[in-house]
Write a protein that binds this DNA or RNA. Structure first.
Lengths: 146, 146
DNA sequence: ATTGAAACCAGCAGGTA
DNA sequence: TACCTGCTGGTTTCAAT
């Protein structure tokens, strides 16, 4: 019997496996959690339909792809410039993540860049819409099991 | 002929498709980029082996899973407390991402929390190792095609 | 990079409790 | 509703080219 929560223990175990490797087959997943492939498939389908699972994505080593700089950029947007900044954000492929946040700054960006000149170009563009604060990323210390 | 870069145009198209849906089959990928499934598989295998592809992961809607707060937390670590903080970070499942950064603060965290009390507990723990600054996430405005 | 063959899996229908 | 089995066509994998 399933409890009344949106996801039960079995769903959590499915999500945990998919976090480790989102390309795992339904059959392998079923072997791990002791369920038939069909049952696994149905549970995953449901989580996709309800929106719990948003996306199956990929993490890349940007250093190996020739991008030497990764950074967080905070923007304290000038009054009335938020919409224009959103439009800029949508045009810049170097911006990998963007969030509206509370606090003295309004927008938080994660960016991936070829070199310092590329960073300078980006900051020049962002400066038109607000004051920027840049933190270069030195290393990723994210725990493995999240 | 392949150029001298670590990845050529075909690899880029493969990565682009995998970013959209990392569960796509080699066969479907082959149909998209006009290559046999085996060739696709070998290219992906190579990118996994070289480390360009780090991980196949999953993005979840944490709101639907009962986590009402997402936030960035910056920590200005007290002198000599960095290692101890790293150990704490590894023990806290609410920390989804962690990076060392340049600037006045030394560590950047992305966290997912049940409620305000949960946030308070986390800040209390982090405070032992440094001064914290918290930005609540209001909304995700990440562009679709990154 | 491709082909071909064996093993394997996804997807679906039909069935159980 | 949640799960299962069994079937069919498609997919993965590997060796040979």
């Amino acid at each position: 019997m399933k409890n009344e929560s949106v996801v039960d223990n079995i769903d959590h175990r499915i999500l945990s496996s998919l976090k480790k490797n989102s390309r795992i087959s339904f059959a392998d997943l079923g072997r791990i959690i002791n369920l038939s492939p069909s049952a696994v498939r149905e549970r995953i389908q449901k989580m996709e339909d309800t929106g719990i699972i948003k996306h199956y994505n990929l993490s890349l080593d940007y250093k190996l792809l020739g991008y030497t700089i990764e950074a967080f950029v905070l923007v304290k947007v000038f009054h009335g410039n938020l919409k224009a900044l959103f439009m800029l954000i949508n045009k810049l492929p170097e911006i990998k993540e963007a969030h509206r946040i509370t606090g003295n700054q309004n927008v938080h960006l994660k960016v991936v860049l070829k070199d310092q000149l590329h960073l300078q170009d980006l900051i020049d563009k962002l400066m038109q819409y607000g004051d920027t604060t840049t933190f270069l990323i030195l290393s990723d210390i994210t725990p493995q099991e999240t």
